[in-house]
């Protein structure tokens, strides 16, 4: 029995268990419901708004972009919070005390947060198809594009969540170091209005990060070819999308293990104890 492979399979089982437990938890059900209702309400109230010069209705244009943003948001903020919290509550320390425990833990996190996207996609996509017309213009080919953008987008952004969760000093700081940058990036990444509406330098900044490209990839999957005129350079830039997302994925694969190892090295019982005392103080 190879202990590393064994730990990875235990980690997969852990990720699956966490996913099932999360589906059964009222807290997480509430989160999915909130995201679904919020997104649909936004689309519904703008269902008659037409996007200038394209003849496209806002829900058609915005839905793929919002999906893109939610994927990025979910797999960055989710793991960031989870990791910051589990550093403080001792989950991580438990795994550090096991042979090959960290490998199992990280595997579990990766699977859990990837699976967590499925209910989110379902609560938004299924009602959207019922409420709006012309949501998916490209049939099976479009769904194939959704699949690879999803996978590549995950690989590009999930490690960023793990990195943020490893370096933030405490759970309370995830808002500042995780939420704030992601919300800012979403705002400038052409999710709610086309990216051309912004200054050139902001467009350049947005195109460094993966959120814009996940949104673009999703739009290329859902929207008709005519809609390409709204994009920069009148092109879906599929090749560039793959390159940018792959580059972020490689960055994640190289940096994340180091950051995780450094973070795990510093884990100890007294650190968990300190976090507990700090949290009690926080509540008072």
């Amino acid at each position: 029995m190879n202990p590393t492979r064994h730990a990875v399979s235990l980690g997969l089982r852990r990720g699956w268990t966490e996913f099932v437990l999360s589906l059964r938890s009222p807290q997480d059900q509430g989160f999915y419901l909130f995201m679904g209702v919020g997104t649909l309400a936004y689309l519904w109230f703008n269902r008659d708004t037409e996007l200038e010069g394209t003849g496209l209705l806002l829900p058609t244009f915005a839905l793929p972009s919002i999906l893109g943003a939610l994927i990025a948001f979910g797999v960055v903020i989710g793991p960031a919070y989870a990791l910051a919290m589990e550093r403080e509550d001792g989950t991580l320390l438990r795994h550090k005390a096991l042979p090959h425990g960290m490998q199992g833990y990280v595997t579990g996190q990766l699977l859990y947060h990837s699976l967590g996207l499925l209910p989110l996609l379902l609560v938004i996509l299924v009602p959207s198809f019922l409420l709006f017309d012309d949501v998916m213009s490209n049939g099976a080919a479009g769904w194939a594009t959704v699949a690879w953008v999803l996978v590549l987008g995950l690989l590009a952004t999930l490690p960023l969540g793990m990195i943020i969760g490893s370096v933030v000093p405490s759970v309370q700081k995830v808002g500042t170091w995780g939420m704030l940058p992601i919300i800012t990036l979403s705002a400038i990444s052409g999710i709610f209005f086309p990216i051309q509406a912004m200054w050139g330098w902001l467009q350049a900044v947005a195109q460094v990060f993966p959120i814009y490209w996940i949104g673009l990839g999703m739009r290329s999957a859902f929207l008709p070819d005519a809609a390409v005129t709204v994009e920069l350079g009148d092109s879906w830039r599929t090749g560039t999308t793959v390159l940018v997302l792959a580059a972020w994925a490689v960055f994640g694969m190289l940096v994340t293990p180091r950051v995780l190892r450094r973070m795990a090295r510093r884990q100890s019982g007294s650190q968990v104890q300190q976090a507990k005392e700090a949290a009690l103080q926080w509540v008072r």
Partner: peptide, 23 residues
């Protein structure tokens, strides 16, 4: 270890089966 609030959704049996597996 002095646990605090980790694995709140798990059951003791499930957690012991999972963690014991590493050995």
């Amino acid at each position: 270890l002095q646990s605090w609030r980790d694995h709140a959704r798990w059951t003791p049996r499930r957690l012991l089966e999972q963690l014991g597996g590493y050995f």
